[in-house]
Amino acid sequence: MKRLLGLIAFLVALPALAAIDGAQILQKVDRNLEPESYESYRQLTDIQPDGTKKVSVLYTMKKGRDKIVALFLAPASDKGRVTLRLGDNMWLYIPDVGRAIRITSLQSVTGSVFNNADILRIDYTAEYDVAAAEEQGDVYLLSLKAKTGEVAYDRLKMWVDKKAMLPVTIECYAASGLLIKTLHFSDIKDFGGGIKRPATLATDSPLQKGYRSVMQWSGLKKREFADEIFTLNYLPRVQELRK
């Protein structure tokens, strides 16, 4: 009888034991990918169907959940350009033009498969709610829904490695359900300072068949910045912050 009661109690408790907290997983993913405030160097390589490559190098600074600045160091034609994101607001500063203009998350300042929302990505928890979470063997599958209509992708499907608590694949969907692109994370690297994360992110899109873009990280480390850096007036001077 005791065994039977124990079995019933176990079966009743099983769903609670098995239930997973999607929001907590997403928070861990955010912090495992990057510290809240950091600097890093990134290389964006756009590969055309014929194999031709175009390479951009960016220096990036992020503060808090939704402030990020990216400075172009290469190619020479883009050198000195700076993009700023504050929440849903994005600007592009072009040295020749001498002032910042507003840009949209769906554009791409590099002309790559990565759009501005990918290049100036802020915390997933700042933009998305977890609509559903499930376990699939070695991974969690999180279904994310954009908090507002201003977010570049209406829905994300994110496969998270259970052990590393890092994303493996993310599918990005429009509100219509159309798959816009797929992001593939790989090449887990120890950046020091307790940061161990994928150093490579590749993307492809059914809307740009044959084209592929790859983002690689280097020199990712924690660094605190003043709020004033994340303002339009500071953009012409951003490159002076590099050490």
Binding site: P15, A18, A19, I20, D21, G22, V130, A131, A132, A133, E134, E135, Q136, G137, D138, V139, L141, W159, V168, T169
Partner: peptide, 14 residues
Amino acid sequence: KRVRVPAPLRLPVL
């Protein structure tokens, strides 16, 4: 939202 775990599915996408 908490979701019960379905039967595990190994994803080829990984």
